[in-house]
């Protein structure tokens, strides 16, 4: 994605110019169409063809018998999902974690970008940016190990709590506070990386606007509210819609690595459910049905967010 998104392309209400005939356009720009080819191939092979695999959701699929020999079972995998209390727990956990990620983890980089923007020294700014970027490049295994060392049962946090008279605490293994823990980990890991786009958008806002606002007597808060935020609102909407498309992917690795400590009731989400039922347990049909449900919910979210954005006067994606 290019950073020119700071100036969004708005839907134009004027009548579109008459389009030349398709074939003549192709003849006019043959190279352009050739350049599209790898992308089309990629999406066909890796995105559209695998969609056919969703038929497994309607079969009692056995990889040994193969696709055609596995018996069709209609909607029984879906009714199986609805009667499975673990699936309902996983769905609930997925939605809760998604909600927290949109409400807490998504705005966090915006706040940090605004904060960084208010720093005067470029050197300090760059230094802070580098430090907060860093965790993005760690894999989840490393992130969890670091958190385990700091917040685990024998870490400094546990010792501090013990010294303050809170008894033996292990934040990393407490199912009651697990949602907060997961969100905090995501914020810590991704906040710096998330600021990049916002920061670029902020710096694309013409300085004259700030000057004009200042001349009109606007203070720091008012300038942020009336100049900076409107200046980056189109980027925020764009990223929010894109984020919603993947919001139900709530961190498979992150949750899988911590599930054994807090239990499935707290840490089972649709992705881990699909993994345990399908890849580990061999219930491929059921796992695929769960994946399909997730896909449908995700699509609905994106369409809803897009139309809300359009109604609110923003461009939307499609």
């Amino acid at each position: 994605m290019s950073l020119t998104t700071a100036e969004p392309v708005r839907e134009t209400t004027a009548a579109p110019p008459e389009k030349p005939k398709k074939r003549s356009r192709m003849r006019q720009h043959p190279w352009m169409y050739l350049f599209i080819l790898p992308g089309v191939l990629y999406f066909t092979v890796f995105q559209y063809l695998p969609l056919l695999g969703n038929l497994v959701a309607f079969k009692d699929y056995s990889p040994f018998l193969g696709f055609s020999a596995s018996p069709w079972v209609g909607f029984s995998n879906f009714t199986g999902l609805l009667t499975d209390s673990e699936f309902l727990t996983a769905l609930q956990n997925t939605l809760l974690i998604s909600l927290l990620q949109v409400v807490v983890a998504f705005p966090a980089p915006i706040l940090l970008a605004l904060l960084l923007n208010s720093l005067l020294s470029d050197r300090v700014k760059r230094w802070v940016q580098s430090v907060v970027y860093l965790p993005h490049f760690f894999g989840w295994v490393i992130v969890i190990s670091i958190w385990q060392a700091v917040f685990g049962g024998v870490g400094p946090m546990a010792e501090l709590l013990h010294a303050l008279g809170f008894g033996q605490q292990n934040v990393m293994a407490n199912p009651d506070t697990f949602l907060a823990l997961v969100t905090a980990q995501v914020v810590w890991k991704e906040i710096g990386w998330g600021t990049i786009v916002f920061f670029a958008a902020i710096s694309a806002i013409p300085v004259e606007r700030y000057e004009a606002a200042a001349v009109d007597g606007a203070g720091g808060w008012r300038r942020t509210w009336h100049v900076t935020l409107p200046g980056i609102s189109s980027v925020i909407v764009l990223l929010l819609i894109l984020r919603l498309g993947t919001v139900l992917n709530v961190g498979f690795e992150q949750l899988l690595l911590q599930q054994h400590a807090v239990g499935a009731d707290a840490a089972q989400v649709l992705d881990t459910y699909g993994y345990f039922r399908g890849v580990v347990g061999g219930e491929w049909g059921l796992a695929t049905a769960a994946g399909l449900v997730k896909g449908i919910v995700g699509t609905a979210l994106v369409i809803a967010a897009n139309s809300i954005a359009k109604r609110a006067g923003q461009g939307g994606l499609f």
Binding site: Q47, L52, G53, V56, L65, I241, L242, G245, G291, L317
Partner: peptide, 30 residues
Amino acid sequence: MKHLNRRTFLGLTAGVAGAAALGACSDSGS
């Protein structure tokens, strides 16, 4: 820009549904 967005978007939604392992169907029979 708009095209790029749409393409990215399609990629994202299509990726959601890929839980099934369709390949390598060994119809070896029993």
